[in-house]
Design a protein around this nucleic acid. Structure first.
Lengths: 215, 215
DNA sequence: ACCTGAACACCGTTCAAGT
DNA sequence: ACCTGAACACCGTTCAAGT
């Protein structure tokens, strides 16, 4: 079982979700395709268990984080730890928290976030919504990353900057009167950093949360 | 072409992304599978064009929105309009803004959001991040909806409340000392409203944004 | 310019059978 | 308890050929 999950994660890491097939996995394990069904009832379950397997490591990182006086600072540190893991493994974003029955570590991670909300002056409903908002920011930012980049970028035939540059190039050809915003941020988009973008979105949510909790 | 997209949307609406196959689509159009490739180069392109097709209607709704004095109120109204559309068509969330080259209307919608940021006292980078944050909240909340619910729920054999109730039931069996947050929000989760949840997340982000823009 | 049938190379999943 | 080969019912995509 353990080796099924580690090999599944290895395949996901090496070539993304489309590379994780039962046939490819069976080959790596040196067995037949049907064997995998002894450990796992379906591909969805395989994906959930593989995801939870690595979320277990993220959870350990989060539990190793230094204690924070301020619960909002603690939430920020936890969310950043999670997002860092997703940057390294973009496929995580698509499956995280999909099924808390199978994803025990995801549930525990959610609980850890929630415990910070318990330290704040909020109603139960506000706490529920606050934690949903934080995980929403993570998932929302992660979806961008999860988009499998074209093969040329993975090959290294085309750099990420070049890839972004192509988009910006078509944007710059748009009528500036009709697309003032697109022109305004074209420079920013070129060579933008995903972590920066995430941190900004997170900070906006956390600022709102601090306000709601009364400073 | 037009009918290819409307039938594709119809299939997605009726039974979700897994129901949209070239074979099913060809049958509805009364033709052969290969014909579709005259209009569209791949399934990804079909998905992008189908998505953009309905985003066109959302864009029209957004353009029909009353003018707002406050750009943040305008952002809220636009985001809610978009989210409402995603609630009706959960599959939208997975494909929205995936490829702005093919999704012309998505780009225009992004521009509309961005134009509100131009009315605020922000740097270009802050504007870029603000609009990313808002679409991130939408996408992050939409991913929950996009999860195809089990067939029993779609059939109506099991109500949504019952479905949520099962989750909560397993949660309540967890050790309250180890999972205080899960217990705290169990009641809230039961019968929670997705739109409420989204609106809360959006309001936190917008409150942070208002703070950043200096009131 | 538009459509087709038939094939190709894959998928996830099942099942009777083995050890 | 664990694994297997072989089949089933699908996929997206291609291509030579038709109108």
């Amino acid at each position: 079982m353990e080796s099924v999950l580690t090999e599944a994660v290895a395949l996901l890491d090496e070539a993304g979700p489309s590379a994780l097939t039962f046939r490819a996995l069976a080959q790596r394990l040196g067995g037949g395709v049907a064997s995998i069904y002894w450990y796992v009832a379906s591909k969805d379950e395989l994906l959930d268990r593989a995801t939870d397997h690595v979320i277990g490591m993220v959870l350990a990182d989060i539990e190793a984080l230094p204690e924070q006086d301020d619960p909002i600072d603690a939430l920020r540190a936890m969310a950043l730890t999670l997002f860092d893991a997703i940057v390294e493994r973009p496929w995580l974003g698509s499956y995280f928290m999909r099924n808390t029955d199978l994803q025990n570590n995801s549930l525990r991670l959610w609980e850890k976030l929630g415990q910070q909300s318990l330290r704040m002056n909020l109603t139960p409903r506000q706490r529920f919504h606050a934690v949903s908002a934080v995980t929403g920011v993570v998932v929302g930012s992660a979806v961008d990353l999860g988009q499998e980049p074209p093969a040329e970028v993975l090959d290294g035939a085309v750099s990420r900057d070049e890839f972004l540059g192509r988009f910006v190039a078509t944007w710059r050809e748009l009528d500036p009167a009709e697309f003032p915003f697109v022109h305004e941020i074209a420079d920013e988009f070129e060579g933008h950093d995903d972590v920066d973008q995430f941190r900004s979105a997170l900070d906006l949510t956390l600022a709102g949360l601090r306000l709601q909790a009364g400073g």
